[in-house]
């Protein structure tokens, strides 16, 4: 189909959990591939594995700067893609690979891992470990509307994606971001969203405020990204009904 967008998937130092999350859209993924997305290359799910020229690239995993091939693939991904999406905590913020100090078989020299945004410009961030199938789906539909939609759809997609474009800037993706960017700024109202979002239960609510167990935190960035007081767009969220309906209709 001519008006499909082309998609690539570059897999760096990630555990394939993001790939699984994408696949966990089940029939939704098939609809996406049928109607909107031409999957050009992707380890695991496509025959072609090497980076090609595409509209949108998903990058899973952080980049190991001791791994020449990974660095080259990442740079090539940037050169050949209109939009680069950092998919998942590792690509966005380093996530669990932030704790790596090398010395593991069979590549003991691979010890230094960076979020991909430290080496290339990233357009959209999807944090979380793993990112959720629904978030990947929503971003995929919005990316399609941004590139192929009507003027109105482009505006909606721009408004929707805007907060995801600036997300990782100035952010450690640690539960301490909840402290520094929300509580310390006098913005926390104790809704409990951060505690619900945490994949490792590092956050509990004590007397209506988050209590962070920093030793448990894997730095995936879900808590602060999900927090309604980290960023909140009235323009987008007030139209939640229409947007949800549009996304569901797109996947019929």
């Amino acid at each position: 189909m001519a008006d499909k967008i082309s998609l690539g998937y570059t897999h760096l130092s990630g555990c394939t959990g993001c790939t699984v999350a994408l696949a966990d859209n089940y029939a939704g993924l098939l609809t996406l591939l049928d109607k909107y997305v031409d999957l050009k290359y992707m380890p695991t799910l496509a025959d072609a594995r090497h980076v090609q020229k595409v509209d949108v690239s998903f990058v899973e995993g952080s980049v190991c700067i001791n791994d020449k091939l990974a660095v080259e693939e990442l740079k090539e991904t940037r050169e050949k893609s209109t939009i680069v999406v950092a998919l998942g905590g590792c690509a966005c913020y380093g996530n669990i690979t932030r704790f790596s100090r090398g010395g593991q078989q069979n590549q003991p020299g691979h010890e230094a891992f960076l979020p991909i945004g430290d080496l290339i410009k990233v357009d959209v961030y999807i944090p979380g470990c793993a990112p959720t199938p629904q978030m990947i789906r929503n971003v995929a539909v919005m990316a399609y509307l941004l590139l192929k939609g009507t003027k109105e759809q482009k505006d909606l997609a721009t408004a929707f994606l805007k907060p995801l474009m600036t997300m990782a800037q100035g952010c450690e993706a640690c539960s301490c971001d909840i402290m520094t960017t929300v509580i310390n700024q006098g913005l926390c109202m104790g809704c409990g969203t951060c505690a619900a979002s945490c994949p490792v239960n590092a956050i509990t609510m004590e007397y209506g405020k988050p209590q962070l167990e920093r030793d448990l935190c894997i730095k995936c960035g879900a808590c602060v990204a999900q927090c309604p007081r980290s960023w909140f767009s009235f323009d987008v969220v007030e139209n939640y009904e229409a947007i949800n309906e549009a996304i569901m209709a797109a996947l019929q």
Binding site: P133, G192, C198, Y240, I243, N244
Partner: peptide
């Protein structure tokens, strides 16, 4: 049931389900 801010949190979680897998629907 929740306060206005909690409703905002719920709707953000539905539109941007970053850490809320299989919750929105």
């Amino acid at each position: 049931v929740g306060t206005p801010c909690q409703m905002q949190a719920v709707r953000k979680a539905q539109l941007y389900p970053i850490g809320m897998r299989d919750v929105g629907a």
